[in-house]
Design a binder for these strands. Structure first.
Lengths: 136, 136
DNA sequence: ATAACTGTAATAAAAAATATTACAATTTAA
DNA sequence: TTAAATTGTAATATTTTTTATTACAGTTAT
């Protein structure tokens, strides 16, 4: 999925945190992020799957944080939304007849994992609560 | 530009390193990577701009490493190819009437920079020579 | 019962990435 | 000195990915 999943998810979480436990509709969230409500609902589906948020159906429904903002660290949010590696997808198929092409994806993958872990470690230093503090 | 620029560039550099100073055509490179030669030439243009490689026009022409593989570190390669941030482009325009939307891009940017630096630091631990060693 | 939501699928539109074609300019070498 | 191989580069087309839109069944509050 797209490279804007992380910012969208973090935006959603920030708004829900601001709502202080209150329920927020996908319409409202979409309005702040400036994207389509259906995309918000899809992203919320994922955040819910990972236990960050929960939703209430029906009139007056919407979403809300499922845990304390200080218990949501940004590394975990990143892990919840990443689909392909940061450094590039290895879904391209190099020439198996070339000694380099034949092996490169495996080497790239391990390179990616290492680098991505460094990224995640960095993100994990911050919680949603820390991030939200910046908006005051 | 695309998220496969890093793997493509690293693939090119690895092949050029293998050629041990010899000249390699974009046709050959494209064959190993399994992409279009024109895309290879564009990527080489960028690598050349950053001083990693040089090219020779005309018959028997092609590209070759412009510096020692042990002087090319992967963090620098990454910096040469990145166009948008790893964690997502902030080219989306959130609602300026929303207190969160209004500020979020600036906060995301600083978050990205930090995290990206961690990534780059990790990549910088390895040179092209180190990476190429894995192919023996 | 009605209104305001979510959840979800299907489809359409827009944007981005990649491939293709084309050709002038350069260089080698027969 | 001409032909062949190659780069550099632009223009265009195709494919893939992302995003938006539409639609509607199901849920809940009033």
């Amino acid at each position: 999925m797209s490279s804007s999943r992380f910012p969208i998810s973090l935006h959603i979480l920030t708004l829900l945190n601001e709502a202080k436990g209150g329920v927020v509709s996908s319409e409202y969230l979409a309005g702040s992020i400036n994207i389509n409500p259906v995309l918000v609902r899809k992203e919320i589906m994922n955040l819910r799957k990972h236990g960050f948020v929960d939703s209430k159906e029906g009139k007056g429904g919407g979403s809300f944080l499922a845990k304390n903002a200080s218990d949501i660290n940004l590394g975990d949010v990143y892990k919840a939304v990443r689909s392909n590696h940061v450094l590039g997808q290895s879904k391209n198929e190099p020439n198996p007849k070339c000694p380099v092409g034949r092996q490169i994806n495996q080497h790239l993958d391990s390179l990616y994992s290492d680098a991505e872990n460094a990224l995640i470690d960095n993100l994990s230093k911050q919680t949603l609560a820390d991030f939200a503090l910046k908006f005051e």
